[in-house]
Design a protein around this nucleic acid. Structure first.
Lengths: 207, 207
DNA sequence: TGCAAAATTGCACTTAGTGTAACAATGTGA
DNA sequence: TCACATTGTTACACTAAGTGCAATTTTGCA
């Protein structure tokens, strides 16, 4: 049997991704139907057709299994940013990149998780940590983009502030889109652009 | 026996504060000597002269017991801000308030925790959550200060960005002050003012 | 087809975290 | 000073989280 050109990243990788996804899906399912503290890892594992031990091979906790969507969302943001042309002004690149993430396929899930987190300290912590990890990655990207040796304070403050704006935008958007009309992506984009504009203006007027 | 004028907040309140502090102290002690994942709640409770069950009456986890210093720090920041005169320009009030928190008594502990968190996901999550709670409180304060009905996006983005700057300042400061000369408070203040200035300028130049 | 690498699983074990009821300490009023 | 009500502490028992390890199954490759 001739191997397909796919090569090294073959069936194994795919299976792992499938398993990971299956676990994440059933975790989300339980969070929706039973509420956030009201189910066990054993249930999630069983639903995903996997042993309890395997669950913990993929995630450290139930909350972490719920954070995959948020992770993907933020990962995409970082990727979009790094794909911007190097000569583009920084803020333009950020706005373009971060606005583009509204295209994430499971955007509505991200909003859902955002709302869930308001009422679950554990999930909140997981989500915050996901944002923190993304911040680190983006910081590296920005640093490389701007020559490599920036003032550390500038770098930390800038990226932190930008992500705070994106977070703020998501929060407003998530709160408003309890019943997502499926095209709400553009609304999120508007919020993000709005928040980043305020940042660029130094929050000079509370319009 | 005549009661002292202290009144209602009597021995009970004081005992609870003492117990709380004792637990926090021994948690920090264990984190320092044994490393962050390498001790149990039972050990901390025993060291604090308290039962395991009582520990959990005060904190949800070992990490939460470590976050008391950070909480106090941020609480003070919020209080300082709310104490600023109402007619002072917003940014001036924030800079004054946030710079004043450098006076926190256990500042060095905060820096220590900041550094510890880099290597412990659990502690990181706890710390991030503490900042998040503080952000909510400060947001309310700012909202009341500015009339009560601000644009939600503006409010979220502004406070988030400001706290990101403070966090950035602390990170730079904590990284630099491995051997704190005990007067490093002013250095932190400088970093905070620096970061907030960048924010006010819209991060226009990466000086 | 057969072998090596890697993933899944079962099992045992420690620790986290919580409900509950008994117990001790504290504040209060006569 | 003595009962009494309130509130904090403790012991106990229990469920579930999370991890190390060795056995087992699955997958990739020659």
């Amino acid at each position: 049997m001739s191997a397909v050109l796919a090569g090294t990243p073959g069936r194994r990788e795919q299976n792992k991704l499938d398993t990971r996804r299956a676990i994440a899906v059933s975790a989300l399912e339980f969070a929706r139907t039973h509420g956030l503290g009201n189910f066990t890892v054993d249930q999630v594992a069983a639903e995903a057709g996997v042993s309890r031990r395997t669950f913990f091979n993929y995630f450290h906790s139930a909350e972490e299994a719920l954070t995959t969507s948020t992770d993907a969302f933020l990962e995409l943001a970082a990727a979009e940013f790094m794909a911007r042309p190097a000569d583009e002004p920084l803020f333009d690149a950020m706005i373009a990149a971060l606005a583009a993430i509204a295209k994430t396929e499971n955007l509505s899930v991200c909003g859902e998780l955002f709302r869930m987190a308001e009422e679950s300290p554990e999930l909140m912590r997981s989500q915050l940590h996901a944002w923190e990890r993304a911040e680190t990655r983006i910081r590296q990207a920005v640093n490389e983009r701007l020559g490599g040796n920036l003032d550390p304070l500038y770098l930390l403050a800038l990226v932190g502030a930008v992500l705070s704006c994106v977070k703020a935008a998501m929060q407003v958007w998530a709160a408003a889109s309890n019943a997502p009309p499926a095209d709400s992506a553009s609304e999120l984009e508007d919020q993000i652009v709005g928040a980043l504009s305020m940042l660029r203006d130094g929050f000079s007027n509370p319009s």
